[in-house]
Nucleic acid binder design. Structure first.
Length: 410
RNA sequence: CGGGGUGUAGCGCAGUUGGCUAGCGCGCUUGGUUUGGGACCAAGAGGCCCCGGGUUCGAGUCCCGGCACCCCGACCA
């Protein structure tokens, strides 16, 4: 991609309404554009990052036999009346023709349960797990912190259905393990802990995945030897670490980046979702749900990986693999850079090529702001020194390498 | 839902004891000179001053009403 043609450029001026580091840097970098409080446009650069996050999640959920579907955002209110959730404050309500009552889904239990029910009659159809990556709508009393807490936000939600509770528990552990893999691949593994939170009706606890960060809205009590946290909601009931009993818990701020629940029969019973077992008997279906918000992950990454110059993306989610730029007006240099750009593209390397006739300061600062992990500068000076300058965004020093060695650094 | 605040050029803002042709910085356009950490000179373009009423010789400015948005708090299966 040529930066000169990219839709969504950097801006030097921070937006007046940016209330957080992620909102400011993502907006200035040309990744997102605020529509209204808690609702954002994703520009090409931002969408590339979001898709990479989604793809990592998708791969790991596919690996635990989740099957991807796409459910509607719009649903008849009746489904929420059935489960008793239509009075939820966060639910957006709409009215259609003839006063028909609709809601925008804040979560999809009310859609997925009858959907799976329609296709699951026998024990032979169980277990089954379906998921989607789609936008959720929550009428938050106050949206805040850029894309960390939106009124419309992107979410991966997985739902599993089981013939008995033991099978649900076994699958729940598999998803838990998949989640750890996901955070590791996203570069968040080291600072993300699993936390015990209130469980709802059928299990003592649910589990949250919490990334430790000062900007976080949640207060956690962390056992540093087990990397386990306890949510503030339940600290009264839970004395000490549930794993090792350690009572020396450290208070920390964290961003909730995932949440998994054993729902039991809370929703399946409401819809009368049962199945016929091998003996011909009707049995209740046990259900679990598992969420991760890719857009919130994106915001979290910016909160955690930045410096005074801008974003420092982990390689796994960076919008491009390398940022190539020329300095100076020398025509021979420009031609050589064009040639390199075409070579890289033909080899399938994701490259952002800043081909603009801009000053060195502007181009280098833009590269720092955008935060692509690897920066390649080609200039008269670099060529005289034997090649191109290579610099990692996460490191202070650069080095000159011969063009022929560039591939070894990708 | 309480409390506070803001709507003026693409962005950030000034102008508000009523008064001239509504300004500044950045950005944008054109030409020229530049090019290793946000260059310089020159010439330009760009405004329903949130909306609707009212007062007045005269309203961005005052009054009434509305709308939108932002921040803090409460809230966040």
């Amino acid at each position: 991609m040529r930066y000169s043609k990219l839709f969504g450029k950097t801006t030097q001026q921070a937006p007046a309404d940016a209330d957080s580091v992620n909102a400011r840097l993502l907006t200035q970098g040309g990744f997102i554009q605020r529509q209204l409080a808690g609702v954002y446009n994703f520009l090409p650069l931002g969408l590339r990052v979001l898709k990479k996050i989604q793809d990592i999640i998708r791969e790991e959920i596919n690996a635990v036999e989740g099957q991807e579907v796409l459910m509607p955002a719009l649903t008849q209110r009746e489904n929420y009346d059935i489960t008793g959730r239509s009075a939820l404050d966060i639910l957006f309500h709409l009215t259609g023709h003839n006063e028909a009552a609709y809601v925008l889904n804040q979560s999809h239990e009310e859609v997925v349960t009858p959907l799976v029910q329609r296709h699951t009659l026998s024990y032979r159809d169980l277990p089954v797990a379906v998921y989607q990556i789609q936008n959720k709508f929550r009428n938050e009393p106050r949206a805040k912190s850029g894309i960390l807490r939106g009124r419309e936000f992107n979410m991966k939600d997985l739902y599993s259905f089981h013939a008995d509770y033991a099978d649900l528990e076994a699958y729940y552990e598999r998803v838990k393990a998949a989640y750890f893999k996901i955070y590791k691949r996203l570069g968040l593994g080291e600072r993300t802990v699993i936390a015990f939170a209130s469980g709802g009706s059928f299990s003592k606890y649910s589990h949250e995945f919490q990334t430790l960060a000062d900007v976080g809205e949640d207060t956690l009590y962390v056992c540093e030897s087990c990397s386990i946290g306890i949510n503030k909601e339940i600290i009264e009931d839970q004395k000490g670490c549930p794993e090792c009993g350690n009572e020396e818990l450290v208070e920390k701020r964290a961003i909730e980046v995932g949440n998994i629940f054993k729902l039991g029969t809370r929703f399946t019973e409401a819809f009368g979702f049962s199945y016929t077992d091998a003996a011909g008997e009707q049995k209740p279906v046990e259900m679990g749900c598992y969420g991760i918000g890719p857009s919130r992950i994106m915001g979290t990454l910016v909160e955690v990986f930045n410096d005074e110059k801008g974003i420092i993306w982990p390689a796994s989610v960076a919008p491009f693999k390398l940022h190539l730029l020329t300095l100076g007006m020398d025509e021979a240099v420009k031609e050589k850079a064009e040639k390199l750009y075409h070579e890289l593209i033909s080899e399938g390397v994701e490259v952002l090529f800043d081909d603009r006739d801009e000053s060195a300061g502007k181009k280098l600062n833009d590269a720092d702001l955008i935060g692509i992990p690897l920066r390649i500068v080609m200039s008269k000076r670099s060529l005289e020194n034997g090649g191109v300058e290579l610099k990692r965004r996460s490191e202070a020093d650069s080095q000159i390498i011969p063009l022929s060695e560039l591939k070894n650094h990708l």
